[in-house]
C-alpha cells in the first residue's frame, strides 16, 4: 500500500495542515494570555514573544480556514457552512466555535494593544476609544471566553476525526485530548520561535515561563500517545490491526518513531531539560528546540490522518 494513495483515503494532507494550524493558533493565544496574566501584565504587548503569539494566532486560523475552503469541491459555496447548521455535526459545531473564537480573539487583541492603538489613533476617531474602553471593561470575560474557546478549538481538531466510526484508529476517545495537548505545545513552540526571530531575548523570563510549561506538556503528550496506541492494541480486532499497521514497519512507522517520537518529543524534551539544568539559553537552542517541536506536531497530524484512514472497521 502506497503511503499517500490508497482506496480508503478520503482526506488528504491539506486537512492535516488545517488541523495543525487550528491547534497552533489555539496554543499560541493560550500562551499569550498566560504570559500577560502571570508574567508581564500591562506591558505584555511590548514583549516579542507575546507579539509573535498574537501574530500567529489570527494568521494560522485564517490560513487554516483558507486551506479548508480551497479543499472543498465547491469552494465558492463555503458560505453555506456558515448559514446552515447541523447540531449533530462536529464540523458544524467546530465552525461555530471557530467564528466565535475569532471574535473573542480580536476583542482580546484589542484589549492587549489598547495603548499603542490609542496612541496611533491620536484621538482622531472617538469611536475607537469608546469601543476599546468597553472591551477593557469586559476584559476578564473576554479572556475567559477566549481561553475556553481556544481549548475547544484545540479539542475540536481531534473530535472532527474521532467522530468517524468508519476508521477504528480515529474513532478513539483519546484523540481529542492528544490533539489538544499537542496543539498547545505547538503553540508554545510557535511562540518561542516567533519570539526569538522577532529579536526577543532567548534568555528572557517569557522563555523560562514557557519552557516550564512545555516540559510537563511533552510528558503528557507522550503519555497520551502511549495510551492511544495501547488502548487500540488492547481493543483487538480492526483497532489492533490499524494500530500495528500504523506504528509497525513501513513509511509511516518511520515517520512515527523517527519524526513524531524522536524529533518531535524526545529531542525537545532533552533540549528543554538541558536548558533548564544549564540555565543558559541561546538563540540557536531555543530556535532548534521549537522547530523540532513544530515539525513533530505537523508530522503527528499527517501520521494520524493518513494511517487512521488506512484501516476500515
Amino acid at each position: 500500500m502506497s503511503p499517500f494513495h490508497f482506496d480508503s483515503l478520503v482526506w488528504h494532507w491539506p486537512i492535516a495542515i488545517y488541523l495543525f494550524l487550528a491547534g497552533i493558533s489555539a496554543g499560541a493565544i493560550c500562551f499569550a494570555v498566560l504570559l500577560k496574566h502571570f508574567k508581564l501584565g500591562k506591558n505584555a504587548y511590548k514583549s516579542s514573544f507575546v507579539r509573535a503569539a498574537c501574530l500567529i494566532a489570527p494568521l494560522a486560523v485564517f490560513a487554516g480556514l483558507g486551506i479548508l475552503v480551497i479543499d472543498l469541491t465547491k469552494p465558492f459555496d463555503f458560505w453555506k457552512i456558515l448559514v446552515f447548521y447541523n447540531p449533530t455535526s462536529v464540523m458544524s459545531i467546530g465552525v461555530a466555535v471557530l467564528l466565535i473564537y475569532q471574535v473573542a480573539l480580536f476583542a482580546w487583541l484589542a484589549c492587549l494593544f489598547k495603548e499603542p492603538i490609542l496612541k496611533w489613533c491620536n484621538n482622531r476617531w472617538p469611536v475607537v476609544d469608546k469601543v476599546l474602553n468597553a472591551f477593557t471593561k469586559w476584559e476578564a470575560t473576554i479572556t475567559g471566553l477566549l481561553v475556553i474557546l481556544a481549548l475547544g478549538l484545540g479539542a475540536y481538531t481531534g473530535f472532527l476525526l474521532s467522530a468517524l466510526t468508519t476508521f477504528p484508529m480515529l474513532n478513539n476517545p483519546v484523540l481529542p485530548l492528544l490533539f489538544l495537548i499537542s496543539g498547545i505545545s505547538s503553540g508554545a513552540a510557535g511562540t518561542l520561535l516567533g519570539g526569538v526571530l522577532m529579536k526577543g531575548n532567548p534568555d528572557g523570563k517569557e522563555v523560562h515561563f514557557i519552557h516550564n510549561i512545555e516540559i510537563p506538556l511533552i510528558l503528557l503528550e507522550l503519555a497520551l500517545l502511549f495510551t492511544f496506541f495501547v488502548g487500540l492494541i488492547l481493543t483487538g480486532g480492526q483497532s489492533q490491526a490499524a494500530a500495528l499497521n500504523a506504528i509497525g514497519e513501513g513509511f509511516w512507522g518511520w515517520i512515527f518513531w523517527g519524526g513524531v517520537v524522536v524529533v518531535g518529543l524526545a529531542m525537545p524534551l532533552a533540549f528543554n531539560l538541558f536548558m533548564t539544568a544549564s540555565a543558559k539559553r541561546k538563540f540557536s537552542y531555543v530556535a532548534i528546540t521549537a522547530s523540532c517541536s513544530l515539525f513533530g506536531v505537523l508530522l503527528l497530524r499527517n501520521f494520524i490522518l493518513y494511517t487512521g484512514q488506512m484501516t476500515v472497521a
Binding site: V10, W11, L72, T73, M91
Partner: peptide, 10 residues
C-alpha cells in the same frame, strides 16, 4: 452540499 468530504469519510 459544499463538498467537504466528511460524509464520505463517515
Amino acid at each position: 452540499c459544499v463538498g467537504c468530504l466528511y460524509c464520505i469519510a463517515a
